[in-house]
Computed example of a mutant assay.
Amino acid sequence: MKHTISALVRNRPGVLAELALMFKEEKLNIKSIAAGETEDPEVTRLVICLDAEGGEVELVTEKIAGMDWVLQVDDLARKEFVDRELLLVKVRMDRENLTQLMQIFEVFRASVVGMGQESITVEMAGDQERVEGLVKLLKPFGIKSLCRSGMIALKRGDE
């Protein structure tokens, strides 16, 4: 089952390494991780996505919460949240498929950020399903390179 863990941590060196080591010790694979400062430069928000059973995630969440540099931790799997991921993708392009590619980009609200003689580079931000949908549609054209930021997420509402 997919889980999304959001943690507010003190912004200090080594936090990400300690967290990764803890996941390794628990034999859990991190699917994506995003980290960045919050409105307070002393605090970083980490968003970690992983596939794991509920009990495993509960144990890891408790271990994270017990670390001295953690201010708050939430398993967002059971809560309403807003998520986004940034995608940059370079696709093979020629005269025959340019119109079709541009239509796909328009449907997904992807923006062209670079163009060469034989390729086109686009960016798109969206939830994971939308990003995966665009990637699936572009595969037959020939993806030359691709980079995903990993998911970022916040709880919905006033919490």
Rank of each mutant, 00 (worst) to 15 (best):
M1D: 04
K2A: 08
K2P: 01
I5N: 03
S6F: 04
A7T: 04
A7G: 05
R12Q: 15
R12G: 00
R12N: 09
P13D: 12
P13F: 14
L16G: 07
E18N: 15
A20D: 04
L21E: 14
M22F: 03
E25L: 08
E26Q: 15
E26F: 08
K27Y: 11
K27I: 13
K27C: 02
L28N: 02
N29G: 00
I30R: 12
I30P: 15
K31M: 12
S32R: 02
S32Y: 02
I33K: 01
G36S: 09
G36K: 00
G36T: 00
E42Q: 10
E42T: 10
T44N: 10
L46D: 12
I48H: 04
C49Q: 11
L50T: 11
G55W: 03
G55V: 05
E56M: 08
V60L: 13
V60A: 10
T61R: 09
E62A: 09
I64A: 03
I64Q: 11
A65V: 00
A65C: 00
G66V: 01
D68F: 06
W69N: 11
V70R: 00
L71Q: 04
L71A: 03
D75A: 01
D75Y: 08
L76M: 14
L76F: 06
R78Q: 14
E80P: 10
E80Y: 11
F81D: 09
R84C: 11
L88R: 01
L88T: 06
V89C: 05
R92L: 14
M93C: 05
R95Y: 03
E96V: 09
N97A: 10
L98P: 05
L98I: 07
T99R: 14
T99C: 05
Q100T: 05
Q103A: 13
F105R: 01
F105W: 01
E106H: 05
F108K: 08
R109K: 15
A110P: 06
V112F: 07
G114V: 04
M115I: 12
M115R: 10
E118K: 11
E118D: 11
S119P: 12
S119M: 04
T121H: 07
V122A: 08
E123W: 00
E123C: 07
M124I: 09
M124S: 03
G126I: 15
D127M: 03
D127K: 04
L134C: 07
L134E: 11
K136D: 14
L137M: 13
K139S: 07
G142E: 13
I143Q: 13
K144S: 13
K144H: 02
C147Q: 11
C147L: 13
R148W: 09
S149F: 06
A153C: 06
L154N: 03
K155E: 15
K155V: 11
R156F: 01
R156L: 06
R156N: 09
